[in-house]
């Protein structure tokens, strides 16, 4: 008679007498996220584009902004690089899902953690946490770099000026939301190139083209599109005066992301891996 191995899942792992918790799923997603090169590269690109381009545009525009001929506020330029940092946030959000489908990793992930909601929640926390911190750090670095040039022309901006601190935190919030937006598209589409194209097109192409729509309804469509609604919170004074008020816009953006994410989750929950 063969001695049958008991079925207690704890028994064969020396020293372990507990069930995995949400923290373990989170830890696993964190390790996964940072153990591929694309994450490091994308995050570095986010910083370089965000902080670097803000500094660069402030350096080249400071004299003009101080001259009195300027028809824009210097405060519009202090988070200017964010426009390009959006690309990397979309890329990270897309890849956190589609890289798993592209490589077959999704099967390993769901074998290890069959509770799909837990997987999705852990991914969302890792992604938004990273993007929020990266967004805030990048915005501050851009402020410090850009403001150094504005200060030299005597048009420096204080952190306590209206909307400046809000735009620093807002950069983190907006990029985090944009990441979730891309992640939801990734869940629905599952292919990296397709999902990324859709995300970029919605934010950069459709978002800007929509302002060409005629009439009041056209104006509202443009205002309510995710990129246009959400980005207002990340700049002290927007270039475009037609945008929604910062927090109103961000609330609309959050609702849109939540709806898309919910759709993605419903599809993901019932799909064969």
């Amino acid at each position: 008679m063969i001695d049958t191995v008991a079925l207690d899942p704890d028994r064969h792992v020396p020293g372990v007498r507990r069930h995995p918790r949400a923290a373990d799923t989170l830890h696993a997603e964190w390790l996964k996220f940072w153990s591929v090169r694309s994450t490091g590269w994308s995050t570095a690109m986010l910083f370089v584009l965000g902080a670097g381009l803000t500094t660069l545009v402030c350096a080249t525009s400071a004299a003009w902004l101080a001259s009195g001929e300027a028809d824009e506020s210097p405060a519009s330029f202090i988070t200017w690089g964010l426009f390009f940092a959006q690309i990397t946030a979309l890329a990270l959000g897309t890849l956190i899902v589609t890289s798993e489908y592209g490589t077959g990793m999704i099967r390993a992930t769901l074998s290890a953690t069959p509770r799909r909601g837990a997987v999705l929640a852990a991914k969302a926390v890792v992604l938004t946490g990273t993007l929020f911190v990266a967004g805030v750090v990048t915005a501050f670095a851009g402020y410090l770099g850009g403001n150094w040039f504005l200060d030299r022309e005597g048009i420096g901006i204080a952190l306590t000026d209206d909307g400046v601190l809000r735009s620093m935190l807002g950069s983190g919030l907006y990029l985090a939301g944009l990441g979730l937006f891309a992640m939801a598209i990734g869940l629905l589409v599952r292919h990296t190139a397709a999902a990324l194209s859709i995300g970029l097109a919605l934010v950069f192409v459709v978002g800007n083209m929509a302002f060409l729509l005629p009439g009041t309804w056209g104006e509202w469509v443009a205002k309510l599109l995710p990129g246009n609604a959400g980005s207002g919170v990340a700049t002290p004074v927007p270039f475009n005066p037609e945008l929604l008020a910062p927090w109103t816009g961000f609330a609309v953006f959050t609702a849109e992301v939540a709806a898309l994410l919910l759709t993605g989750w419903l599809v993901f929950r019932h799909r064969d891996a």
Binding site: P20, D24, A28, A108
Partner: peptide, 14 residues
Amino acid sequence: RNHLRWLAASNGIP
């Protein structure tokens, strides 16, 4: 190693 690391973490394996 990293592949095994995240799998171990997900299931509380030392």
